[in-house]
């Protein structure tokens, strides 16, 4: 089926009324930059395009809590920034749980970061506090220059 039909199908499964579904689908296709290919079959989509369709369907119905698993994987840098900005806008009035290994995504959109290692939480705080915490634990001689979230990642989650 085409991207548009798929979104209408998912809107139906989520119980969204048709008129509202139409408006939301038009908006989400615009945001995810899929308006120009809305009538193309999903089988002809690249990996990144499929990612964006899935993101669009996740956002149908204006959910209060959105869980995103690697939403920018497979996207080119321009698309990644676009989606990142969109997620940041979303997070203003809803909870967004973003699971990713791409540190640059986190530091640009996240208010709080939860780090999990083998199912156990090893850190839960704002990005700034996490960086400050690690900077106090690791000597300057080991990590010269300013600490970043990547250092935090390596400290907590590296082998």
């Amino acid at each position: 089926m085409t991207a548009q039909t798929f979104l209408y199908y998912m809107a139906g499964l989520k119980g969204i009324p048709k008129r509202r579904a139409r408006e939301e689908i038009d908006r989400l296709l615009e945001v995810t930059n899929l308006s120009g290919v809305r009538h193309r079959r999903l089988g002809g989509f690249s990996g990144g395009m499929r990612q964006r369709v899935l993101l669009a369907q996740a956002l149908l119905g204006d959910p209060r809590v959105v869980i995103l698993d690697e939403p920018t994987a497979g996207l080119d840098p321009k698309e990644r920034i676009r989606i990142r900005n969109f997620i940041a806008d979303l997070s203003r009035d809803r909870i967004v749980l973003l699971a990713t290994h791409i540190v640059s995504d986190i530091e640009s959109v996240s208010d709080r970061i939860l780090m999990l290692k083998r199912g156990r939480a090893v850190g839960l705080d704002t990005p700034e506090n996490l960086i400050a915490d690690v900077s106090q634990r690791v000597p300057r001689s080991v990590v010269p220059g300013r600490f970043s979230l990547e250092d935090v990642y390596l400290y907590h989650l590296g082998e």
């Binding site: 089926m1 085409t2 009538h39």
Partner: peptide
């Protein structure tokens, strides 16, 4: 597809 999508969305 654009024509069939019009029917399918109903």
């Amino acid at each position: 597809n654009s024509l069939t999508d019009r029917a399918l969305r109903r």
